[in-house]
Nucleic acid binder design. Sequence first.
DNA 1: TGTACATCAGTGAACGCGCGTTCACTGATGTAC
DNA 2: TGTACATCAGTGAACGCGCGTTCACTGATGTAC
Lengths: 219, 219
Amino acid sequence: MTDTGTETPRERYRAQVRAEVKAHAWEQLASAGASALSLNAIAKRMGMSGPALYRYFANRDELITELIRDAYRSLADTFRATAADGSGSGSGDLAALAHALRDWALQDPHRYFLIYGTPVPGYHAPDDITGIVHEIMATLLDAFAALPSAPSTTAFGSHLEEHRRWAGDHPAEPAALHRALTFWTRLHGVLSLELAGHFTGMEFDPALFFAAELDELTR
Amino acid sequence: MTDTGTETPRERYRAQVRAEVKAHAWEQLASAGASALSLNAIAKRMGMSGPALYRYFANRDELITELIRDAYRSLADTFRATAADGSGSGSGDLAALAHALRDWALQDPHRYFLIYGTPVPGYHAPDDITGIVHEIMATLLDAFAALPSAPSTTAFGSHLEEHRRWAGDHPAEPAALHRALTFWTRLHGVLSLELAGHFTGMEFDPALFFAAELDELTR
DNA sequence: TGTACATCAGTGAACGCGCGTTCACTGATGTAC
DNA sequence: TGTACATCAGTGAACGCGCGTTCACTGATGTAC
């Protein structure tokens, strides 16, 4: 990942502190929400003075950006690893991806919401993040392109065919484009409402609901 | 709605100011996000001093609660009105409800996210709001129960049958319960990602995607 | 191996800001007789 | 219709707080010769 070989002790130390700051940031995110993230509070928890953190992050926004980038990175890695495990064709890969997504989300709901939740007004993610987003999409497209039975193209599929720049140069069929998109939105629909607590008090088992949606997606 | 007949001028004035405060609150919500909502800032915009607002709201939380309640109320009313217009059976009602939902969301995305977006840590909505939530769900269940062709019960449908307290005493078939739920989560999936801007730069038309999802739901 | 210098981590004080909320008070509006 | 009183809206000062960020400075760590 990082070029550990040529790292000086100082660089190593810097990386360590940055990581520790981010760890505390995640904790604070979970307990107080994204907009309440405070450099001073993090510093205090680390036993440092507030200004000290400016050695490691230019400002508050850079820290948030880093958290967002890490979140996307983590999901992309999880996806890639899951796809590599399944290694091939069949809808088993899709089920594995879906469950990987759910596990990843449940593992840290605030991380999920930082990416897919209410957008922070005025905040714009830097360009390099789109690359990671594409990576995630590509894994999904690969899985759908590898499905043995390609279903007939839908009306929206045709529309997508003419507007497929988002898929990069991926050689997926129109139907695969459509199915990859619905995979994303439907699972997000169930997951985000579950994580936001909209199912609490509704008695039924969210895992079963998720499984039911997944079932329709891979049929 | 309110008992206008027995309203004294003072009561009328109070209601007016409260409404104006809320209007400014919505504006602020849109430009700075839910957690940045500030009583002082609202007062300043209204040309009043900060403490003056404490005549109208006990504290900041009460204002937020009121906004949430109004948002749910507005959606419930929209749904009820839409269902009343369609007045009956057929999947046309469902399409109308779906489009009503989308229009309602697009009309004020921050209002949508206030309800269905990232939950505010530590905040718990008061109990009376569940009543409005049930009302929304009931409209949906009515529409699905009125469908002429009731599809066969799914596996998850059976699970719902045994965990249907959330449906109240609504006489909907298990399949209708399941379909009402997926109606909600799938449309939310598309809508929330659209509103959060995850489709920008993806070229395709979100309205067509929404329509495609709706199509599958009413088939 | 030792010395001179440069680099960098972290501190404490400070600036200006806005927040939620309480409180004692003024002045206007409504009510009772 | 007029007067006495109660109610209520809104103000300004104040409290305590935490925020992001800048700056001059100390002290430790690494580098060059």
